[in-house]
Computed example of a mutant assay.
Amino acid sequence: MLNIADTLYDWCREARPFALATVVQVSGSAPLPPGTALAVDADGNVAGSVSGGCVEGAVYELCRQVLADSGAPARSRFGYSDDDAFAVGLTCGGEIDVLVQRVDPVDQPHLTLALDEVRRGGPAAVAQVVDGPEELLGRSLCVLGDGSAYDGTLGGARENRAVAAQARALLRAGRIGLVEVGGDADTCPERLTVLVHTRAPRPRMLIFGAVDFAAALSQAGAFLGYRVTVCDARPVFATAARFPYADEVVVDWPHRYLAGTEVDARTAVCVLTHDARFDVPLLRLALSLPVGYVGAMGSRRTHDHRLGLLREAGVPETHLARLHSPIGLDLGARTPEETAVSITAEIIAHAHHGTGLPLSHGSGPIHEPLAARGWELPPVY
């Protein structure tokens, strides 16, 4: 649905009911991916597309029917038709499943907030029930900004928590996906299939220090979907040839570059220079910014010395508590590649409030949010 966010936002702001047809599953050579949507208002105005033209007429009529009738959601499959392919089938030979639902903006104010966030270029996720009990079909839940809060409801508190956790993960990765929750006593009794729509730029990984560890970390960061920047003040080391997996390589003083670039709550700052000339001004600034993760490389002795210098520079203890140093989880890493895995593992654990412990050492559901277990969550910056 976020492909037509501007129009849907205008309709929601005007409290105008509309029918929303969403591609929830595709197979074969379907023309458009899941999450693509077409909407029709009560006056017959249309926005968006679900097939690039092949079955728009049939979907339009289904939308009009849902608006005119009781409003109960309808799900239909469109595939290739040998008898009349151009009338009601996909000429490409694929198949799409389309869910059509009535949306009353007055009843879903959280949807207006999410559409407004997308319209303004901010990150947002909308989780939409596309399969499950009929009374839950089409219900939605929204995750905005840094993902620390959600709005809307899919049923009970367990369903909301489980889906919100999945939506946060997809939002951080900037991906659209189908997820299944429930069907057990630990999450929710009803099994739900939820389509999570997301709109967010790739999260940033800022690596300071053009060293061998940075080359491995930039590759790992790119693999995880980050937009990777490597920055170093030394032009002989900071070259694109040395960091082929980085999206950009910058020659500048680290703290000066950080002061002038855009960051957000999903940004990971990795300081690999372990040189006080670079580290102290850079970390002093990084720890004051609303970024998601700040880590610094070095031995424990280097870390202790660096903490002393940061305190002398006036960095408050509340900021120092955010510093992950020595950087990474204790995996016994030795090589640059192993160290990159250690660092990215810590970034993932921090983003999802994971413990970093082996799963075999725990009990209970693997993906249940910590808050649901009665544990206190660490602060989200």
Rank of each mutant, 00 (worst) to 15 (best):
M1G: 11
L2I: 10
I4L: 12
A5K: 01
A15D: 15
P17V: 07
V26T: 15
L32D: 12
P33M: 10
P34D: 07
L38K: 08
V40K: 04
G44M: 12
S49A: 06
S49I: 15
S51P: 12
E61V: 05
L62F: 07
C63H: 14
C63A: 13
S70K: 11
G71T: 08
S76G: 02
A85P: 08
G89M: 03
L90Q: 01
C92V: 02
G93W: 11
V103R: 08
P105T: 00
L113H: 13
R120Y: 09
P123M: 04
A125I: 00
V130C: 10
D131P: 02
G132A: 09
G132R: 04
E134M: 06
L137Q: 11
G138V: 06
L141E: 04
C142F: 01
V143H: 03
G145D: 05
G145E: 01
G152D: 01
V163L: 13
A165C: 11
G177K: 00
G177D: 12
V179T: 14
G183S: 14
D186A: 15
T193D: 00
V196C: 13
F208I: 05
V211H: 03
V211L: 07
D212C: 04
D212A: 15
A215G: 12
A215C: 05
G225C: 07
C231A: 15
P235H: 10
V236M: 15
A238I: 04
A241N: 06
V249R: 01
V250F: 11
P254R: 04
R256V: 12
Y257K: 08
A268L: 02
A268G: 10
V269R: 00
F278C: 13
V280A: 09
A286G: 11
G292Y: 10
Y293T: 12
A296V: 03
R300Q: 13
T302F: 05
R311I: 04
E312I: 01
A313P: 05
E317R: 04
T318L: 15
H319V: 12
G328R: 02
L331I: 04
A333F: 14
R334I: 14
T335A: 11
V341Q: 10
T344I: 13
A345I: 02
I347Q: 02
I347D: 03
A351T: 15
A372E: 10
